[in-house]
Write a protein that binds this DNA or RNA. Sequence first.
DNA 1: GCGTTGTATCGAACATCGTTCTATACCCGA
DNA 2: TCGGGTATAGAACGATGTTCGATACAACGC
Lengths: 236, 236
Amino acid sequence: MSIPDPPWHSRRRTLHGRGRRIPRPPITQERIVEAALTLLRREGYDAVTMRRLATELGTGPASMYAHVENKRELDQLVINEVIDPTLIPDADPERWQEQLKESMRAMFRMFRAHPGVARATMGLVPTGPNALRSVERTLAILKAGKVPDQIAAWACDLIPLYVTALAYEESLPQVEGDPGWGADFVEELRGYFGSLPVEQFPLLVAMAVPLTSGGPDERFEFGISVIVEGIAALSR
Amino acid sequence: MSIPDPPWHSRRRTLHGRGRRIPRPPITQERIVEAALTLLRREGYDAVTMRRLATELGTGPASMYAHVENKRELDQLVINEVIDPTLIPDADPERWQEQLKESMRAMFRMFRAHPGVARATMGLVPTGPNALRSVERTLAILKAGKVPDQIAAWACDLIPLYVTALAYEESLPQVEGDPGWGADFVEELRGYFGSLPVEQFPLLVAMAVPLTSGGPDERFEFGISVIVEGIAALSR
DNA sequence: GCGTTGTATCGAACATCGTTCTATACCCGA
DNA sequence: TCGGGTATAGAACGATGTTCGATACAACGC
C-alpha cells in the first residue's frame, strides 16, 4: 500500500506515457532526482542547480519545470531520498535514551556525508515517506521510554531541529576562507576572548578556555545530552 | 575603553576624513548600517540588498564596497546593532532557570521583530560588542545557577543556536503561499497524518492530534524548557 | 491516410543577486 | 597651479531560479 500524497503537493501528472524514444530516454521526475543525488554526493549541494541538472541530463533548464514544480519541491524529493529510517533502532525500553542519541548521531552523520543538505532541510515539514518512517520510529522509542504523548510529539519536532541547525551551522564557512573550526581559528578566538577588557567582560576573559574548548563532535554530544536529559526530566 | 577588533576582521580604514561636502554627506560605514537597519525594520531582511542600500543612499552598488568588505560583514554589523544585551536580566541565583528562559524569549521576540535576521545570524560566531555583552550576561546567570564552567560555556553556544534555528524555521514560507502555520494548514496536516495507512504508521495515526498541537509559541516554550531542564540535570 | 490537437521539449530571455572593473571627479599638499 | 591619491559610481560579469514562446512529435478523429 502506497502512501498518499500530502494534500499541498502539486498533483504530479503522469505525462509522457508513450514517448519511448530510444536515442534519449524521456526526462522523468525519477531521473531528475537520481541525477540530483549523484551530483549531490559528488560535488555537494551547491552544485545542484537547475541549470547544472539540466546539463547533466543533456537538456536546458526549462525542461525541469515540467516534472518538478520548484527548486524547493526538488529539494524535498532529494532530502527524502537521503533520509534513511533504518538507521533509527528498534525501540528498546531499557535503552531508550541511548537510542535517541544514536538516532541523532546517525542523522548528523548523514548531514556530514551530504554537505549543504542541512540548509535545504531547515524549515521543511517532513512529509516524504522516509521522513514519515523516521518520525514513526522515533515515536516508538519515545513511547518505549514512557514519554507522555504531547512531549513525545514536540520532541519529534525539536530533535531534528537541533541536529539540522547544528549541521547547517557547521556547513557554513566560518570567516571567508575555509578554516571552519580548525585549531588555528580556535586559538585565535581563544586569544581574542582572553584579550578583552576585564572590567567589561570578567567572565568571558576568565572562561576563554572552556568557551573555546571542544570540537564540533563534543558540541554535538553536549547538545544531544541536554535534549535527552531535558525530555526525560519533563516526562517525570 | 573600546573593544578591540577581532583579529580576522578587515581593518577598517578611516578614510574620507576631510570630505565634508554639504550637498550630500559622505558615505560612511555608520550611514550604511543605519540605512540597512531602517530598511530591515520597514521591509524585512530580504529587502536589504547591496543595490537597494545603494539606491537608498543615492548612489550605486559599487560604492558600498569601499566601506564594507562583504555582504556578510554588513550582516555582522547589522546583527550586532539588533542585539540588545540589556534584555538579559541581572543574575539572581534564586531564579536563574526562569532568567535563562526570559533571555531566550527576549531573543526570540527580537528575531520576530526583524524578520529574516535569523537566517543571517545562523553560523556567526558572536564577536560584535553587543553580542559579547550578551554572552557575558548569560554566563553570569549560568554561574549564579552553579552550572559548571564547561557546561555553561557550551550552553552559551546551544542557547542561541536553538533560538536562532527556530526563528529561522519560522521565518521560512512553509509551502509556497504564505500560510505559515495558520489554522488551516495545521488542520490539513492533522488530517494527512490521520489518513496514513495504519499498518505502516500506527503511532503517527494515533498521535496525529498531539503532533499537530500547539502554535509556534508553545513549541518554543517546550524547547526552552527542555534545554533549561537539561542543563540543570547535567549540572548535578 | 491525413490533418488537428495536445503536449513534451528546450533555447532564449527576464529579473534578481553579490561582486569587480574601470573611469571619473574631487580635495589635499606641494 | 598642478599633480596624485582617493572616494565615488556606471557598467558589466557571472551566477541563480524561473518564465516565454516556438518547435517537434505522438495520438486521435475523420
